[in-house]
Write a protein that binds this DNA or RNA. Structure first.
Lengths: 351, 351
DNA sequence: TTGAAAGCGCTACCAT
DNA sequence: ATGGTAGCGCTTTCAA
């Protein structure tokens, strides 16, 4: 058994308070006594104040939780999530705080438990919308939290982008280039949708709020160009990763009037689409592709995409958590997006 | 202020134990009483038992810490780290445990503090060697831990690969193809080495143990093929990511006798090298490239590489933590590696 | 500069 | 099935 602070105090012949001060408030005791305490402690194998006990007593933990829907691994699969995390980590580090990554299991009960058990001082919610009312559970904990979901409740701290108009900008880029037969490539279009073409009667049927908003923006742009929603191809990827994007595009039967462009809802999917198309020879290379996020791999691949500032999003979220704005109405921060045109998109080839 | 369990007990008119049981041991009280307690609690806004207090009382936390040297963001930059983390996460999830990602600041003092403050039940040490004796601090906490470093202390639980012979297999592949003028691309060759060619008198001068072991394996293979260490080009990348790999290769002046192959110490670097070389036209395309890890992006890129089982490494590490082998000598697990030959490597072109 | 006392919020044991 | 008691290990007044 590890010795406790108490044991050290007895060994040195001082009170527990003094030992505690030796660790947490060096200015409260003489340097020599402090040294003597620390030496004895080391010698006894005392590991320093127990973090849990300290947290309980102090009333705060020194860690913030980052909540993810779906498997934790998803957090790492998408390069954009990675950038977000990087930003959060950076800000947390500055505030001497660690990061507790909390995967939310699929069921609400499990998700609740995860939120209730997390020993943290606050939450960054990095996930979809409020599937299953998990936000209420978070609110119930009475801890500060920041959302990045597509639709924040009024009063909640939030950092995000205008998903709809961001997506519209990509779609308008394609319509301006003359594209009319376009495949919309996304994960999370419908629950458990596999790989391949999908019938989606109405954009509002898409449950995942981010995907819905992006597709709605796309629909806006094409409607303005005279292309009805039903004339667009919705292409489902089984996962949000490069391989799944490639697989989805491969599954798309060319047909008599093949699509001239693929508009993907994330860069990883778009890169997968490029993989598949470039492997498809001359034909494939002429298909335009756009992505979303502008992850680091996008530029070398020449991918046209909508840039959203990932790290800044993470940093901002953490900042909102650590330094809440005095005025609650300043707690919703919308970050700008930019269409970055590279070589993966071009005019419709004259056949 | 949030109500406590105590307050709920008073409101319902039962003892604290009973309320506690309502949450943690449903079988200890009648269903109806339990329901009444839960309802009252919800109504009062009681968030459920405070995790910190619970941990203190129970004596365990329900979270394991994953320790990283260098910036936390590094954890997410390398796709291999991501796979490892995925494996750990998976195992942790099965054990109802969360993951605390603990970035170790550069200085030893800061790193110590991070280890000492982490409220966890055990550690997975995912990083280099024992830079600065941080392992001793971990050991000092008296918590179980698992290392993945290149050189475990005897008795410590460890999971890893034979770095040296794994790297040798890649190098032998190149020598068998006739390559003699080869660039060795690595991050962490020397502390704070930037981008570009580096003079490394001796492999043993490389401080980072993993990099050292891999380079040593490469040296073995080339020595066997009659190529001295000093005839190999050591190419330093400023970071362990794709862009840095590309930058390093671009910085390599072709010279009169350009390298015919690039052997990278990680797949992300190798993919960067391919980016740079493929942009370099016909000439560049003829340079062979090999990587290390076999991350998901390697296959689509046709990258020849040494596969190490990332997720399995993570899963095994966590398993070792949660279910320690009865026999301590079984606590060191070496995972197999395989050379995966794809299209990025080929015979030296006859010029 | 040091120490004594009080309790952070909870759960596990042992009675009843 | 329910309650009383006794801390988990620490920090923080406040008094000396």
């Amino acid at each position: 058994m590890k010795p406790t602070l108490q044991a050290v105090a007895e060994a040195v012949g001082v009170s527990r308070s003094t030992v505690s001060n030796a660790y947490g408030r060096p200015d409260q005791l003489s340097a020599e006594l402090r040294q003597r305490i620390l030496d004895t402690a080391r010698q006894m194998g005392y590991p320093g104040p127990n973090p849990t006990a300290r947290s309980l007593r102090r009333g705060f933990v020194g860690a913030i939780g980052v909540l993810f829907t779906s498997r934790l691994s998803y957090a790492f699969t998408d390069a954009f999530a990675v950038r977000f995390l990087t930003g959060v980590a950076e800000a947390a580090e500055r505030h001497d705080s660690s990061l507790l990554l909390v995967p939310l299991p699929v069921g609400l009960a499990g998700a609740r438990k995860a939120v209730e058990n997390a020993a943290v001082d606050g939450f960054c919610v990095y996930c979809a919308g409020d599937e299953g009312g998990i936000i209420d559970t978070i609110r119930g904990r009475g801890l500060p939290f920041v959302t990045t979901s597509a639709r924040p409740q009024p009063g909640d701290r939030w950092v995000g982008i205008d998903e709809r108009s961001a997506a519209r900008s990509a779609a308008e880029h394609l319509t301006a280039l003359g594209h009319r037969r376009v495949a919309l490539l996304a994960h999370d279009v419908l629950p458990d949708a596999g790989t391949g073409r999908l019938r989606v009667a109405n954009v509002t049927d898409v449950p995942h709020p981010t995907t819905r908003d992006r597709l709605a923006g796309v629909a806006d742009a094409f409607a303005a160009a005279g292309v009805a929603w039903s004339d667009l191809t919705v292409l489902s990827a089984a996962d949000n990763d490069r391989a799944a994007g490639a697989a989805a595009v491969r599954a798309l039967d060319a047909g008599p009037e093949p699509c001239t462009a693929v508009l993907a809802c994330s860069d990883v999917l778009a890169l997968g689409a490029l993989d598949a198309l470039r492997a498809g020879g001359e034909e494939g290379r002429r298909v335009s592709v756009t992505g979303f996020d502008d992850i680091p791999e996008a530029a070398p691949a020449g991918l046209t995409t909508v840039r959203q500032p990932g790290e800044e999003k993470g940093r901002t979220a953490a900042a909102l958590l650590f330094d809440p704005p005095a005025d609650a109405s300043a707690g919703q921060i919308q970050l700008p997006t930019t269409l970055v045109v590279r070589t993966s998109s071009g005019p419709v080839p004259r056949s």
